[in-house]
Design a protein around this nucleic acid. Structure first.
Lengths: 347, 347
DNA sequence: TTGTAAGCGTTATCAT
DNA sequence: ATGATAACGCTTACAA
């Protein structure tokens, strides 16, 4: 481009495959093979090449490699947020699985917005990722068609849908909350409060709320509108919504929270208001964040092994990219951890 | 490769630049220009090309583009952890700055290990990132030479070193703790406890501890070995180290913690032990995590605007990559937030 | 086992 | 303003 005439076929200007080949006195093909398929090269040449590579400090040009192989060994993942819930653990799990197989994780955040999610995924595909990972199974309405058209392998995380096996890996959010609610009903609770996570662009949160409603309906029960609050991911909101809910008599005897911080907020506010937990009020959450066990009254919650989700997703998506058969369990367990914050209904 | 003979010069097989050009009846150069420098193409052709692109749903092949331009528009950042401290906020700041300029953020975690950090950076460079970002200014001993040899622009985050202007952006960790310690000394405290963050591969933590020691030395004071503990990032460790420290009489009257979770642990344990804060004991931390203000006794701490660090780093590294002049303030403020957990020394 | 050379899908130079 | 074509640095089919 700059010196088109100075580039004689085979001549080596920059430190690249050609130069290595020239100095080692072999062809570029041999160098390439020595790097990628050492067993196909005679020990002698292999060593000679390795030595030259070391000496020159040559770093293979990944972009050129990607262009030639049509693979980038890169997988993109879009998360609603990096710090919420246990996404951090999942990212760790993904990375550990990827680094084993020499894949790189490309991360993006969409802030619970399907447009942003779609945008980030388009960027990923333009950048040439081999596959994309997303949270949840509900997305921008054009996404499915886009992924199909571009032939991009993909996987949904944090959801389990028995109807569509293989499309997602995660817990059954609905079932988990059915079980938690039944457990509380079993303790005699009849009036429930819910501090749910905002359900906009969050099908997991929606499924959990539906699980609560369905379990209550089994007993002819429902959450009163004034005992239902929507919040984000903060202790502060948990406090505020708790306060609003207990303001409306008859108070619920049990409050289920959509995530760990909301639950911590509810717990701290109950303390501040002198509402005894669990004697007068049971509190349960979702996600097992450390503070839940360190407060004076540990909080009953549901734990999903976030890192294990990441590892399974990692293995599965690599298998998808490489066209291998792989047996993965798609459903991840959501375990109820019963702690001191829940107990028999008062009276 | 598969059908080498079937590829006649200019013929278009897959949906690519060639096909778009062929259908639009222009050259590939014109299509490329229409996409990247629309102003250099006549409005008529520009529209014709755009229409064909839309119709075919062509997605430019980023890898090929990167090979031709020698730029990937990708910047890699290695963090010790994604969830510790306020790294999440910094990542947000980076992303917001990058997305404005069409850069993509490649993220990796090194788990407070210089070998892993070096490894991840090598991977980044192989994959063709335009620049790399790291946390701290101490790294693997070969890293500097590697970055110089490969000509990779780079920047350290979360540190400020007046000696080496332009190499890093962040707070002056040492100075911040000198100030915090002086403030406590000013309250009459003379016996100090320290629950420090592990200082292995963490020069920020080390600088902070040194700041404490230096400020104490100004008054002829020092931390007794039995009042010094090293921990990670958990409430649990904070509790344990607090317990160990107050076990050794004479108890310190003030304890400084290396991060938010350690401080929360110290606070919860002091409550559990019935040690009144701040009357009998002052507690201060680093990082302003939400729980610190929501506990019954809010915790005095130091806040660094993490997202602002990310934004500044983002702007600066893009300027470095694009060879622009750019005026950035390299030092970020570390603000002491005085809350109820610190007060005059007892007696 | 090793070499030759086409090809990956763009960009950019140079000529028109 | 547009077009023809070399070049980007590798991999790989095919030939030897």
């Amino acid at each position: 481009m700059k010196h088109p005439k100075s580039r004689i076929a085979g001549a080596a200007q920059t430190v690249g495959l050609r130069k290595v080949a020239a100095i080692a006195g072999v062809s570029t093909a041999t160098v390439s093979r020595a790097m990628n398929n050492p067993e196909r090269v005679s020990p002698e040449l292999r060593e000679r090449v390795a030595s030259v590579v070391r000496h020159l400090g040559w770093i293979p040009h990944g972009t050129a490699r990607a262009l030639a192989t049509r693979r980038t060994n890169t997988i993109g993942a879009v998360f609603p947020a990096f710090t919420h819930g246990d996404f951090g653990g999942t990212i760790d799990g993904l990375q550990s699985e990827f680094s084993k197989r020499d894949y790189t994780l490309l991360l993006a955040r969409c802030d619970y917005d399907y447009n942003q999610e779609f945008h980030q995924i388009r960027k990923f595909v333009e950048r040439g990722v081999d596959a994309v990972l997303m949270v949840g199974e509900e997305h921008h309405h054009e996404l499915a068609e886009f992924l199909a058209r571009t032939g991009t392998p993909h996987l949904n995380m944090y959801v389990y849908n028995a109807q569509k096996p293989g499309t997602s890996i995660g817990p059954d959010n609905h079932k988990a909350l059915v079980r938690l609610t039944r457990y509380l009903i079993g303790l005699g609770h009849r009036r429930f409060g819910v501090i749910a996570q905002n359900t906009t662009a969050n099908d997991r949160a929606r499924a959990r709320v539906q699980g609560i409603r369905d379990a209550l309906a089994e007993h002819g029960l429902a959450v009163r509108p004034e005992h239902f609050g929507l919040g984000g991911n903060s202790i502060h909101e948990g406090r505020e919504l708790f306060r609003r809910i207990v303001d409306h008599a008859p108070q619920p005897t049990a409050i289920i929270c959509g995530n760990g911080y909301l639950a911590v907020g509810a717990m701290l506010e109950s303390q501040a208001q002198g509402i005894r937990v669990p004697d007068a009020m049971s509190i349960a959450g979702w996600d097992d964040i450390e503070i839940m066990t360190e407060l004076p009254i540990p909080i009953t919650t549901i734990r999903v092994q976030a890192e294990e989700v990441g590892r399974r997703v990692g293995r599965r998506i690599i298998a998808l990219v490489e066209g291998q058969q792989e047996v993965t369990e798609f459903e991840c367990q959501a375990e109820i951890l019963v702690r001191a914050s829940t107990g028999p209904a008062p009276g």
